[in-house]
Design a protein around this nucleic acid. Structure first.
Ligand SMILES: Nc1ccn([C@H]2C[C@H](O)[C@@H](COP(=O)(O)OP(=O)(O)OP(=O)(O)O)O2)c(=O)n1
Ligand SMILES: [Mg+2]
Length: 1129
DNA sequence: ATCCTCCCCTAC
DNA sequence: TAAGGTAGGGGAGGAT
């Protein structure tokens, strides 16, 4: 530690210590004016230190242990950053959230450091969190040296926690189901609250003492167990002691638990160690915020172990891989693979366990088989029901339902724990039996398979399968039935669980027959009954038809499959699209030509987590993304592929969504943002993926606390070097690996990009499209030259820097370099705009929480029937106290869509086209060591993809690409400028304003946000082509029809009938004459809002609301500015 | 026409 | 508390 550092620290420390509330009214509390990002951060720091001072003054009985210490926390720690912060500050220390290199800290607290960070921090004292905790415990500052994270010369790779200092560590043991055996499962049970909640066999039943990893003594020392001791008294008798499943691992996820419900040691072992010592304050205070306490790696491991959907996906992929490999091998060895004569009868089985998870889990709780029972992680309201047994279904309980809903319709539900291992075992037996039938097998899922037994049945029929001979058909069908029965018996015997089987002449019929077969039965659809059978189903009973397609069919009058037959194929194709339309047309007639067991090659590999994401710092988000990319990399290696395109998917809390969604740690209502990056060369390297993914994420510039979901996906896959390009061979390899239990190690990591490059020299100095073309064509004569050490991103980055150097930089750095080059542009556009918000010009403020006038789209307003418009304007400008009931204005966009798909996250996409510099195809990159902008041409790309949740996302923009909400956030002068520009552009029949420019203005003038480093910053001020091109005019008449149909039955009474009439009439005009989609959307939204205001009006209108959401999906620009203007911190 | 990209939708 | 993943089909619209 150099003396300069020390001196600097002293100054900082003094400043921190002195800082009290003197400047509470100081500049840092004023509304932020834009003063550059340095200024922003400066103020931010001051703000934080004010908070510290407050905290210090509220904890004046504590010895100033940390006086003289200025600490900074890096990465994941335990205790959490917040807790360490609290501790240090309450005990007299200083704390810096940001390490800016200017204000020195005395200590950096970290549990582990990346090598890069080690270098970065090499001049600091890096200590483990235990130093803080132990010092507080000891009541004095312990020597930091004993808590060094990094020993001189020795780098610590693993999380560096001394056993002796376990106090600061999570103490619970993690055991995935794969590690569990019945023998190791804890069998002694204690009654607990869980029992009253009908939670059966869940980990809550465990006694704390039963865990092999009991409380660390040091933990007990500090933790006040007095009023937290769980109810551990009464014994219950587990139904089946030796088989009692119990997930011993209760370790919290990424986050601290609410300490108030701590009832076992693994919970108490989390954050709360600090609590009781901390000036007797409530533990809750320390931890009542979700607190990240786990390493992302650990979180991921745990999460994926417990995620049923992850297991389902994984199992499916494995099964597919194995079955395809087996099939390939078979058809390879016995060339015949007797293709039946085309047109011959087929016999397809669809085999499926009844209530699979529930049935398997119930084997360990036989006393509940006749009671309504479900499989779920817990009994809380947001717990998802993976599977319910048939008694529960009688109440209306369904798979995928949340516990709350299920308990409302079935109060006495038993909740069983997952038993993934048992599901795997059952599945294995299931597939063994199925394969032994000798049919062609295709996996549908872990509990579900298709079997083509045509050959077997036709052979039994004794003819060629084409003859229409009663007797042979009968024999074939009988064979199918017999075979099925014996298969069912066999599976029941092997697994103890019932399967049902649907039999039909194609996959569709087998599938629909299955429904009738359930539970525990089989049903064969005979050719003569096909039409009647299928005609009686609702369209949603057809595979591939759910909420959306079902809704479209409903709109054109088809509720039942037989109704579909009344529709022309053209109508279906127009409504649903060519492929889907034709498929539904076929389905309605029982036609399905799909073959069982077709070989497919994987097109993508991805990993995502949309639960439990609650970051506090950007570092946490970065680390998490890095971990996710490591997971992704592993999966790529497993599949022996690498890919040329990385796509990042981000869910961000919707603006109006509560911080805590109804589901515990769920993502809640979100906007989603996807961005993809073409890599010049395929990769599976975790370093490269991680670096680029982090870079993309940072490019969004979201506050880490707003993130709710993160995903990474790799596409444009290529086989790994050394693995066969032939998917067939590669499958075989996989099979070998599986069956042999070892196989060739797939280890491969083209870290540096210097090896394993199949695409030859074209990658150098070629535009990306060319690369695409070249790599796609596998011409063996192109000698893979020693590759340059660069990523594909190089091709889109102009720079003065040597490209080889540039390529090694993370994307965000490169972007910054690039933006430097364009500084002039940026400054110009910024200087043109006053950065001070005008108060005098602020929009009229409506009473009673109605929207700002500025949030109403001007064009829509203008085009309203004049009487309505007059009323609107009067309301806003002249009669501030007029009753809102007399004029109805959309208040909030989220009210506009009340109809949603039953479950999932709903979002509606808005994309925007922008410009990006891309390398000219002709330029010779390999000979130019310096890139200049002249090497680049403007190319149309999608710089940002944002899907705003339409519930939140506003609406009222007519034909502009900037949302009203977005506009209203602008300073008035800028807003006017934008609107004026848009008007000009419209007149010129050109596109709207360059969104990226607008965005930039906002970010800089309003949002106080540092440059996000995304490429959109680099867009030129004007685009050569219209941005707004997405008018799907064809959808307009549909919308109008839907509204008209509804209006035809609309009972015209009540206070709003005139509004309704005016809007419906106006819609006609907009659609019929103006053909202005965006305007139409707003009118219909308006209409929706109006009828929502009146009791009873909300009834009906479902169809046009649905139509509206679809039309909205086709409108570009109305919403996509969501995601901008967030404040990074 | 056909390709490509970015989603939406569906299934388990 | 709670573990809301993942891959493929295909539609819309722009580029070629
Ligand atoms: N939303 C869902 C749907 C299914 N599953 C899991 C649990 C199910 O047991 C398994 C199989 O799904 P099925 O659709 O086959 O449903 P079940 O087997 O539970 O019931 P059944 O097949 O009798 O309708 O997949 C899930 O976790 N979440
Ligand atoms: Mg099933």
């Amino acid at each position: 530690m150099g003396s300069r550092l020390e001196a600097n620290s002293t100054a900082v420390r003094k400043r921190i210590e002195k800082h009290n509330f003197d400047d509470e009214k100081g500049e840092e509390y004023e509304a932020s004016k834009f003063g550059g990002f340095q200024e922003y951060f400066r103020r931010k720091k001051i703000k934080l230190q004010n908070l510290d001072a407050e905290r210090r003054s509220s904890s004046i009985g504590n010895p100033p242990i940390f006086r003289g210490v200025v600490a900074h926390v890096n990465g994941y720690t335990q205790p959490s950053l917040q807790d360490l912060h609290s501790l240090i500050v309450s005990y007299g220390g200083g704390f810096l959230q940001y390490l800016d290199g200017k204000t020195a800290v005395t200590h950096i607290i970290a549990s582990n450091l990346t090598p890069k960070k080690k270098v970065e921090f090499r001049r600091y004292r890096i200590v483990k969190p235990a130093w803080v905790v132990d010092s507080v415990k000891a009541g004095t500052l312990l020597p930091w040296d004993a808590y060094r994270l990094v020993d001189e010369g020795i780098s610590q790779q693993v999380l560096g926690f001394d056993n002796g200092n376990i106090i600061s560590q999570i103490n619970s043991q993690t055991r995935g189901y794969k590690d569990q055996t019945d023998a190791s499962w804890y069998t002694g049970q204690v009654k607990s609250v869980a029992d009253e909640l009908n939670l059966v066999g869940h980990s809550n039943d465990d006694s704390a003492m039963s865990l092999p990893n009991a409380l660390a003594p040091s933990f007990v020392d500090v933790y006040d167990l007095g009023n937290l001791s769980p109810n551990l008294s009464e014994e219950i008798e587990p139904p089946n002691l030796e088989a009692q499943p119990s997930i011993a691992d209760r370790s919290p996820v990424l986050f601290a638990r609410d300490p108030s419900d701590v009832d076992d040691e693994s919970r108490t072992s989390t954050v709360v160690a600090i609590g009781s010592d901390w000036q007797g304050d409530t533990i809750a205070k320390v931890t009542d915020d979700a607190t990240q306490i786990q390493s992302p790696t650990h979180f991921l491991k745990q999460y994926y172990e417990e995620s049923r959907l992850h297991h389902l996906s994984t199992w499916k992929a494995e099964l597919k891989s194995q079955l395809q490999a087996a099939a390939a091998e078979k058809s390879f060895s016995q060339k015949l693979h007797q293709k039946r004569a085309p047109g011959s009868r087929r016999y397809i089985l669809h085999v499926d366990f009844d209530s699979f998870f529930a049935a398997v889990s119930l084997k360990k709780f036989p006393q509940y088989v006749d009671k309504p029972a479900v499989v779920a992680h817990g009994g809380g309201s947001g717990s998802e029901i993976a599977s319910c047994n048939y008694p529960a279904r009688k109440f209306g309980v369904k798979n995928g339902m949340w516990m709350k809903a299920a308990q409302q319709i079935c109060p006495d539900l038993k909740v069983l724990p997952y038993d993934f291992k048992a599901y795997e075992d059952a599945s294995r037996s299931f597939y063994d039996a199925i394969i032994s039938t000798g049919g062609v097998v295709q996996s549908v899922s872990v509990d579900e398979a298709l079997v083509d037994v045509s050959n077997i049945c036709l052979a039994a029929g004794g003819h060629d399968g084409k003859a229409v001979q009663e007797s042979s058909i009968w024999r074939e069908q009988a064979k199918a039935d017999d075979l099925t029965k014996s298969l069912r018996d066999q599976i029941k015997e092997l697994t103890g669980c019932a399967v049902s089987v649907g039999i039909g002449g194609n996959i569709l019929l087998a599938k629909v027959a299955l429904r009738k077969a359930k539970p525990a039965g089989q049903y064969q659809i005979k050719p003569e009954e096909v039409l009647d059978f299928i005609g009686g189903l609702t369209v949603q009973d057809l595979p591939g038809v759910a909420y959306s397609i079902g809704g479209k069919l409903d709109e054109i009058g088809a509720k039942y499959v037989k109704d579909v037959r009344e529709l022309s194929k053209e109508k279906l194709m127009t409504t649903l699209g060519p492929k889907t339309g034709e498929k539904i047309w076929d389905y309605a007639r029982g036609i399905d030509r799909t073959e069982v067991g077709e070989q497919v090659i994987r097109k993508s590999v991805s990993a995502e987590v949309n639960w439990g994401i609650r970051f506090v710092t950007q570092e946490q988000a970065d680390e998490f993304v890095q971990s996710l990319c490591e997971e992704l990399s592993k999966r790529l290696v497993n599949e022996r592929v690498k890919g040329r395109q990385l796509t990042m998917k981000i869910m961000r809390r919707a603006a109006d969504a509560p911080l805590d969604p109804p589901k515990h740690l769920g993502h809640g209502k979100c906007d989603t943002f996807n961005k993809s990056l073409l890599l010049g060369v395929a990769t599976n390297s975790k370093e490269i993926l991680g670096r680029e993914a982090i870079s993309i994420m940072r490019g969004f510039g979201f506050s880490p606390g707003e993130l709710r979901g993160i995903g990474v996906q790799v596409t444009k896959l290529e086989p790994l070097k050394g693995s066969a390009e032939n998917p067939l061979e590669s499958s075989q390899k996989r099979l070998q690996f599986k069956t042999a239990g070892l196989g060739t190690s797939p280890k491969q990591d083209d870290n540096t990009n210097t090896d394993d490059i199949e695409s030859p020299q074209q990658q150098r100095g070629q535009a990306i499209p060319s690369i695409t073309a070249v790599t796609a064509s596998k011409s063996p004569d192109q000698e893979p030259r020693k590759a340059i050490n660069m990523l594909g991103t190089q091709f889109i980055l102009p720079s003065q820097v040597d490209p080889d150097v540039l390529a090694e930089l993370p994307e965000d750095i490169r972007s910054k370099l690039e933006s430097k080059q364009h500084t002039k542009d940026v400054n110009t556009s910024r200087e043109a705009i006053p950065s001070v918000r005008s108060h005098s010009n602020s929009p009229a403020v409506p009473p009673d929480g109605l929207p700002n006038l500025s949030q109403l789209d001007q064009d829509t307003l203008d085009a309203l029937p004049s009487d309505v418009r007059a009323e609107v304007l009067a309301f806003y400008h002249k009669s501030p106290h007029k009753s809102p009931g007399q004029s109805l204005l959309p208040q909030s966009p989220r009210k506009f869509r009340s109809i949603k798909p039953p479950t999932k996250k709903t979002s509606s996409g808005r994309k925007r086209t922008g410009l990006l510099f891309r390398k000219k195809q002709s330029s010779k990159l390999d000979t130019n060591s310096t890139l200049t902008q002249s090497n680049f041409i403007a190319t149309r790309v999608q710089p940002i993809k944002a899907k705003a949740n339409p519930d939140t996302a506003l609406s009222s923009e007519a034909d502009e690409e900037v949302s009203s909400e977005f506009l209203s956030a602008l300073p008035e002068d800028i807003r006017q400028e934008v609107l004026a520009q848009q008007r000009r552009d419209r007149l010129k029949k050109r596109g709207g304003i360059d969104v990226a420019v607008v965005k930039k203005k906002v970010q800089r003038s309003v949002a106080d946000q540092p440059p996000p480093g995304q490429r959109t910053l680099l867009l030129p001020p004007r685009q050569p082509k219209p941005t707004f091109t997405a008018n799907r005019l064809s959808a307009l008449p549909q919308l109008r029809e839907a509204v008209s149909a509804w209006y035809g039955e609309f009972v015209e009474e009540g206070p709003y009938q005139e509004d309704v009439e005016a809007l419906v009439t106006y819609l006609d005009k907009v659609v019929g004459e103006e053909k202005d989609m965006a305007k139409a959307v707003n009118v219909v939204r308006w209409l929706g809002w109006v009828i929502d205001q009146g009791d009873g009006y909300g009834k009906g209108g479902e169809q046009w609301r649905r139509a509206l959401t679809r039309v909205e999906d086709g409108v570009q620009g109305a919403v996509s500015n969501r995601g901008l203007g967030s404040v990074a911190f």
